[in-house]
């Protein structure tokens, strides 16, 4: 143990999933912007990293204003440097600062160069999910060489379908964990399952895949019986999920219906056609199945949300978390829940 009062808590090594994306109009209609989302994310991430928790975020690697991958990497890097310095001064200081697991699905990972991976290797483990891991039969796989088939062609439809399947597989593997075989190493590298997931913002329309990413990740987390923290006060898909749990009506919010999704994301029709024509691997849920299962799971959480979502909070606190727009309070509630559920230590200073 450290001899200092302000040593970090015991390393938890938990993997906490961060489900976040930005949809401008949705957020702005609620009086918030990208800055709010980023600030909320970094507040949470900083506290979790200092507890030794690892973070899982499936963002891409393009430099874009609404991409949070580099924000998280810079944070991990800064926290690691600071902890290293503290450790140099006090050998007993707990050395562990969490790192980022970036689960990246085919074909997005094809654009991650060795240079990018090497640059961030101490902060981030990239976990690639290829078509084989996604359960796509060899005969149905699309080429990896960047060939872009003409819109409307079979090749184009197949590519759309395979990308959506890989995206779903990536989300599933991020939730349940996986192992990565490494040549000449006796044991494969273990990528742990998620200990908990935090939902913040999120696109409700114009997304890739069969359903909005946050919807699918929420469903997988419920399936895995892992704690789910829904920050519904910051708009987006997380707000829809909060409404579905917190609402009083019998019907789910319209965003959880297939008709609404098809109306607001026209590309879904092409994807549905492709999936119908070629079929889906076993276990892959299409739009209809995923929305139906999610609506059912969320409806089941209405009476006792804390128990159903395994938040470690009371029902009132869980509802407060789903409604608050106060970043400080939201951070407190998530940390309190994790503290109760996993014994995360109170943070210093």
């Amino acid at each position: 143990m450290s001899t200092f009062k302000y040593s970090a808590g015991a390393s938890t090594s938990l993997l906490i999933g961060l489900s976040i994306s930005y949809q401008r109009d949705n957020l702005l209609a609620r009086g918030l912007g990208l800055e709010h989302l980023r600030e909320m994310l970094l507040r949470l991430a900083r506290e979790l990293l200092r507890q030794g928790a690892n973070l899982a975020y499936g963002g891409h690697w393009q430099e874009a204003e609404d991409n949070f991958t580099y924000d998280l990497l810079r944070l991990v890097s800064a926290e690691q440097q600071e902890r290293q310095l503290a450790q140099d001064l006090d050998a007993d200081e707990e050395p562990r600062i969490g790192r980022l697991y970036n689960h990246s699905a085919w074909p997005a990972y094809l654009s991650i160069t060795p240079q990018i991976e090497a640059q961030w290797i101490n902060c981030c483990r990239i976990v690639r999910i290829d078509q084989a891991q996604a359960g796509i039969a060899e005969a149905d796989r699309s080429p990896d060489d960047g060939t872009v088939a003409a819109p409307g062609s079979d090749g184009h439809r197949r590519r759309l379908r395979n990308a959506a399947i890989a995206l779903s597989a990536m989300r599933r593997i991020a939730t349940v964990g996986t192992e990565i075989a490494i040549p000449h190493r006796s044991r494969p590298e273990r990528v742990p399952p998620l200990a908990a997931r935090i939902l913040l913002g999120g696109k409700v329309q114009q997304y890739s895949g069969f359903v909005p990413g946050i919807f699918e990740e929420a469903l997988l987390t419920l399936d895995a019986r892992a704690p789910l923290y829904v920050l519904g006060g910051f708009g987006g898909a997380a707000e829809v999920i909060a409404r579905a749990i917190d609402g009083s009506g019998k019907a789910p919010p319209p965003e959880l219906t297939e008709a609404w999704q098809h109306e607001h994301t026209p590309a879904l029709a092409t994807l549905a056609d492709a999936a119908k024509a070629i079929g889906l691997p076993p276990g892959v849920r299409d739009t209809k199945a995923a929305l139906k299962d999610l609506a059912k799971g969320l409806a089941g959480a209405r009476r006792q949300p804390a128990k159903a979502l395994r938040t470690g909070l009371s029902d009132d606190e869980t509802r407060e978390l789903m409604r608050t727009t106060d970043m400080r309070r939201a951070t407190q509630l998530v940390l309190t829940g994790l503290h109760r559920g996993f014994g995360m230590h109170e943070l210093p200073g």
Partner: peptide, 28 residues
């Protein structure tokens, strides 16, 4: 949001009877 561990530990050397709490963490 809180001083760095390094800064906190340095302050503790000089003020062992003080406990520092940032506004952000005052109620966590």
């Amino acid at each position: 949001r809180g001083l760095s561990l390094l800064e906190l530990n340095m302050l503790e050397d000089h003020f062992p009877r003080l406990t520092f709490r940032s506004f952000e963490r005052a109620e966590t």
